[in-house]
Design a protein around this nucleic acid. Structure first.
Length: 120
DNA sequence: TGGTTGACTCGTA
DNA sequence: CTACGAGCCAACC
């Protein structure tokens, strides 16, 4: 165990903070995928962790509604309270949603980096 | 202490 | 378009 190890030490709390920071970094009117947020937080392949963190979040200022599935769909079950709320929040920001799905390319179409902005 | 869940994703069929 | 498996991991039970 060296000092380097301590510096680079990762903990669930730190992962959560990095994830939340990335969610807050999504500008109004734009959306990002769970996997995208995870990747930007330095946690590639941990999309599910992003969902876990968001489900446990209590910060009302967190723009959680800007996080979608990789295919552009809202992750909540269609018609559920959460689904309706997310839809409403996105609509309020001018994000076009059709049948629970945001227009634009799917995350899988481009592995590089992607934030689906207002222009698509 | 160990199994199950879930606001996920990707490749394959 | 659907279905299934594998990978993922904190939170629950």
């Amino acid at each position: 165990m060296t000092e380097d190890t301590l510096v680079t030490e990762d903990t669930p709390t730190r992962r959560a903070e990095r994830i939340l920071a990335q969610v807050r970094a999504i500008p109004p009117g734009a959306v990002a995928g769970y996997g995208e947020v995870a990747r930007r937080a330095g946690l590639p392949g941990r999309a599910r962790l992003v969902a876990t963190i968001l489900s446990a979040n209590t910060d009302p200022s967190l723009p959680w509604h800007r996080v979608l599935r990789s295919d552009g769909r809202i992750a909540f079950p269609e018609g559920s309270p959460g689904w309706h709320e997310q839809l409403q929040r996105l609509h309020a920001e001018g994000v076009r949603v059709e049948a629970g799905r945001v227009r634009g390319q799917s995350a899988a179409a481009d592995l590089d980096s992607r934030l689906w902005g207002p222009h698509g």
